[in-house]
């Protein structure tokens, strides 16, 4: 019905992923969970998921 849902999903996760990864890269205070910079890692995963969704939507 007129809207490819992958556009908003892709945009949202790209935005949140970039934000989270950027925050993780800048803020590295004892922001670290169990010795892992989880914000950076998970932010990149969300970013990748968002980009994949956008590519799928752009492909038609």
């Amino acid at each position: 019905m007129g809207l490819d849902i992958r556009w908003p999903i892709g945009l949202m996760f790209t935005l949140i992923g970039a934000l989270l990864a950027g925050f993780g890269a800048v803020v590295q205070s004892d922001a670290i969970s169990l010795g892992i910079n989880i914000n950076l890692i998970w932010g990149l995963i969300l970013l990748g998921f968002g980009v994949l969704m956008l590519l799928g939507a752009a492909k038609g």
């Binding site: 019905m1 007129g2 809207l3 908003p8 949202m12 935005l15 949140i16």
Partner: peptide
């Protein structure tokens, strides 16, 4: 601020989907 930003981004997107579909 980062937590609130994620929360606001999510709310903006779900409302945006509703408004985009309104014309149909």
């Amino acid at each position: 601020w980062i937590d609130y930003t994620i929360l606001v981004a999510y709310v903006a997107f779900v409302i945006g989907i509703g408004w985009t579909l309104a014309r149909y």
